[in-house]
């Protein structure tokens, strides 16, 4: 007797790591560790066959996690909303995710999987109905985030997802242990990206500072530190800031992956 194919409800998605708020308004929340941007919905398909195909799954054009800010909420679909989602403004390689989405479409087509022809709307679902729209709008504050990896998820129902396969990305920053202050290892391809990711690391500690990000990214460590401190200063004068300053500490060094790395120490 021939075995039935092992079918699962699967989709491909970019996993989101973010400075999630401590409190949410009423709603059925997606677990923080499962929040994602769906890149392709595959439906119920034969998982072992897909596993084989994944061997030549395209790598994203960004080697380091893509950084962004969720600046506004979206209630979907607009007519009778059932979903509370985040709109993301990418802070770098603005069109990279759209390009990658197209590349995934080509890969799906080549492997005879269905490709959704509708224009794709990138969003991060955080909650589902029932919810009170006004409360969500009132409480919302911008959320810094990054894509930490590309995953193949199985949908288990009732907002539960299980990751079956992962294409990890390099983290833009990692928090380090420091006796009195706070410290981060910042990574980037260029000095400018180090600057951007340093801003992101600070926003993960204190999200309101995101509104003071500088778009004028610097090319040398001294200028990066001076610019970060100008950002701290602007934030402190306007809304208060838990950071005293970013130290003139360390050097930008090259890692084995030919990336740049800097240990940022923040006096608090």
């Amino acid at each position: 007797m021939q075995e039935e194919p092992e079918e699962k409800r699967l989709f491909l998605a970019a996993h989101i790591e973010a400075a999630w708020p401590n409190h949410y308004p009423e709603g059925r929340l997606t677990a923080e560790e499962s929040r994602h941007i769906t890149l392709a919905f595959l439906g119920s398909i034969d998982y072992p066959a897909l596993q084989d195909a994944l061997k030549d799954f395209p790598k994203p054009p960004f080697q380091i996690a893509l950084a962004g800010i969720a600046e506004t909420l979206a209630f979907l679909p607009p007519t009778h909303p059932r979903v509370v989602a985040l709109n993301v403004r990418w802070l770098e390689e603005e069109n990279a995710l759209a390009a990658y989405h197209s590349e995934i479409g080509v890969w799906l087509h080549a492997h005879h999987y269905p490709v959704d022809p509708r224009p794709f709307f990138f969003h991060v679902t955080v909650g589902r109905a029932p919810f009170e729209r006004q409360a969500w709008e009132q409480e919302f504050r911008p959320i810094p985030l990054f894509i930490s990896g590309i995953h193949l998820y199985e949908s288990l129902g009732n907002l539960h997802y299980q990751s079956l396969w992962t294409l990890p990305l390099i983290r833009p920053f990692t928090e380090l242990d420091h006796t009195a202050d706070i410290a981060f290892q910042i990574q980037g391809k260029t000095a400018q990206q180090i600057h951007l990711h340093a801003q992101l690391a600070l926003a993960f500690e204190y999200p309101p500072i995101a509104q003071f990000f500088s778009a004028n990214l610097q090319d040398s460590l001294d200028e990066i530190i001076i610019a970060l401190n100008q950002m701290v200063s602007r934030a402190d004068a306007a809304i208060g800031c838990p950071f005293k300053a970013v130290s003139f500490h360390g050097q930008i060094t090259k890692t084995n992956d030919q990336l740049l790395s800097w240990e940022m120490i923040v006096d608090v």
Partner: peptide
């Protein structure tokens, strides 16, 4: 924040003027 900025302003100025040259730590 007043004092933090006074310290930062001096550090920026001193680093820009190269007063860190020859010291084992820029800080």
């Amino acid at each position: 924040g007043f004092g933090h900025q006074v310290c930062q302003d001096a550090l920026n100025e001193f680093v820009r003027k190269g007063y860190d040259q020859g010291l084992p730590d820029k800080q």
